[in-house]
Design a binder for these strands. Structure first.
Length: 572
RNA sequence: CGGGGUGUGGCGCAGCCUGGUAGCGCGCUUGCUUUGGGAGCAAGAAGUCGUAGGUUCAAAUCCUAUCACCCCGACCA
């Protein structure tokens, strides 16, 4: 492609709307433009990146035995009502009415659609296993779209769905997809970590996320990873085993209510009572589908709302309002405790359950209770892990110390079990003639998110440094003096040779000064830069440089194709 | 949805407090010079100040409403 004939609107100045480097670079490099919050247009360079990454994904999916199809984005609301997700997914779903005032949705995922398809067609175990995928636009009405392509309301995703007859068969299908995912990300130049995750609104049995570890603000996910073994999990999922257990008293002391004037927060209470935060339990009041829940975690721990939500089986979980706290505890926010609580479900973290003689709120303004003990002073309706994993916790697998890292979720895999197959009727007959629901899996890769995520890792002060397999072009060719015939001639020759050799090349044939071309080349980030200038051309040489390297090689004009191939071999 | 902020040529911004119908840098067009890391000079084109209403002789500037966008939080398939 010739620059003069393409549409590459690079920008010199910083774009204030972009916080992340990756977002900034995509805007400045002329890759994307914003139409509305979380809605982007993909310009020619971005289109090529999407194409390259999609090709890799498609290739690996096909190798894994998946079949490409395209399902409709538009979907009647009835289907989602049938699966029960019309209510649970709620506000994240783009909804509209057609001219007949029928409720429709714009799909953010396709479990319903694909299961409906199968339900109508698959009758026998002989038709299984089945693996279907598509690469397509998705809609999600995010509360707060941000970070460019990282969290958009419209984006492109590869989604795949497997249907199996037996657990053994499903395990094979699932593993096949996991393997394919590692291949995809590796080919895109990305090291990813597979972590255990919560199943969220997808439901199902187990799930994994594929994380690109970053040390920037772009990491929206926190990952707890063991330093000794392979264990890694999203902190929303990671089971907590605490390393800093407080000393446990052997005998139970008498409970005592004390005044704690002005002390409502953990810091204030521990300072006032001169106790360690590990000897105190905080009681947080939540409303789970309209019913009050008191969640107790140790004073030094953070409550994990996802764990609480799962524990009580709630669809909607919100922190209780000040009025509700007053209504159910009889005290303002800051003094809730389990003792004497009525009509409120009490859920207790195991780290609290093992404490003795601890401090809790008294359900009275500016009062706390000392020496409280579970069972003697209050009953727990449920004892379940509620804490968010943190640095220094112990690995649930091997007991080694955990570290917490930031990651960007670029892919996920869900073991759905038979949930959708049952509600939507995807059933088959086995060899005995008995009917069973299909065992399903669903698998996503963010096609537009992943390349931007890659830029969080691959850039420098001057711009983008694309991994070679997802770069729009492998080579950018820069003729320096467009006014000199020998330069233009040599450039045309090299351009033609590279193209004939099947190498993607972008030639900056603009009538611009060297500085402009070099700066733009660094900004848009093609892996290899070839410079053709009058000086070196006098000796029959042209310059070749990897975007990621400082070093410039002088190579003969004639051997350029081989030189490019050799260099491409050496870079990521 | 709660809190904070911003809307002024294509991009980045000043002007607003102390009303008098718009300015700077980059980019764009033309010409001359320059030509290996974002050139110089000269001449140009382009905005009615997010939108609507109000106050006033007069509104980018003051008031009200509304829309959009950004940031923090909650949410996240």
């Amino acid at each position: 492609m010739r620059w003069s004939q393409s549409y590459l609107p690079t920008l010199r100045e910083k774009q204030t709307e972009a916080e992340l480097i990756s977002h900034q670079l995509l805007l400045r490099g002329g890759y994307i433009r914003k139409l509305a919050a979380g809605v982007y247009l993909y310009l020619p360079l971005m289109q090529r990146v999407i194409q390259k990454f999609s090709d890799i994904v498609r290739d690996e999916m096909n190798k894994a035995g998946a079949l490409e199809i395209t399902m409709s984005v538009l979907c009647p609301a009835e289907l989602w009502q049938e699966s029960g997700r019309y209510d649970t997914v709620g506000k994240e779903q783009m909804r509209l009415k057609d001219r007949h005032m029928h409720d429709m949705v714009l799909c953010g995922t396709h479990e319903e659609t694909v299961t409906k398809l199968i339900a109508g067609e698959v009758r026998s175990y002989k038709q299984l296993p089945l693996n279907l995928y598509q690469i397509q636009v998705k809609f999600r009405d995010e509360i707060r779209p941000r970070f460019g392509l990282m969290r958009g309301r419209e984006f492109i995703m590869k989604d795949a769905y497997t249907f199996d007859a037996t657990e053994e068969s499903f395990a094979k299908s699932y593993q096949g997809m996991v393997d394919a995912y590692f291949n995809v990300f590796k080919r895109a130049g990305l090291d990813v970590l597979k972590v255990e995750s919560d199943t969220g609104a997808m439901g199902g049995k187990a799930a994994h996320e594929f994380m690109l570890l970053v040390d920037t603000d772009a990491g929206e996910e926190k990952i707890a990873a063991c330093t000794k073994c392979e264990y890694a999990a999203n902190v929303e999922k990671a089971e907590v085993k605490d390393s800093a257990r407080p000393e446990i008293d052997t005998e139970l002391r008498d409970k005592e209510t004390v005044d704690t004037p002005g002390a409502a927060t953990i810091e204030e209470v521990t300072a006032f009572l001169k106790v360690d935060s590990t000897h105190l339990a905080k009681t947080l009041i939540y409303m789970a589908d309209g019913k009050p829940v008191a969640a107790m975690v140790r004073g030094d721990r953070e409550l994990n709302e996802i764990k609480l939500k799962n524990a009580v089986g709630a669809v909607e979980l919100d922190m209780a309002s000040e009025e509700d706290v007053l209504k159910y505890t009889g005290a303002p926010v800051g003094f809730a405790g389990p003792v004497g609580l009525k009509d409120v479900q009490i859920v207790v973290d195991p780290l609290v359950a093992e404490l003795r003689n601890f401090v809790v709120g008294a359900n009275e303004n500016e009062k706390h209770v000392l020496n409280v003990n579970i069972d003697r002073d209050f009953r727990a309706d449920l004892i379940v892990d509620l804490s968010t994993a943190r640095e220094g916790d112990l690995c649930p697998k091997c007991g080694g110390p955990l570290t917490v890292k930031d990651g960007i979720e670029v892919g996920n895999t869900f073991q759905l079990g038979t949930k959708y197959a049952e509600t939507l009727g995807a059933k088959f007959l086995d060899t005995e003639g008995n009917e069973h629901p299909c065992i399903m899996g669903s698998y996503g890769i963010g096609i537009t998110r992943t390349p931007q995520a890659a830029l969080e890792k691959y850039s420098d002060d001057n711009g983008i440094i694309w991994p070679k397999n997802i770069a729009p072009y492998l080579v950018e060719l820069i003729p320096l003096q467009m006014g000199k015939e020998n330069v233009v001639e040599a450039a045309e020759k090299v351009y033609k040779e590279l193209q004939e050799a099947g190498i993607d090349v972008l030639m900056d044939d603009r009538q611009e000064r060297a500085g402009v071309k070099f700066n733009d080349a660094d900004l848009i980030g093609m892996p290899i830069r070839i410079t053709i200038g009058d000086k070196s051309l006098q000796q029959g040489k042209i310059e070749m440089k990897a975007r990621s390297a400082e070093q410039v090689d002088l190579v003969p004009v004639d051997g350029i194709v081989e030189a490019v191939r050799a260099l491409a071999e050496r870079i990521n």
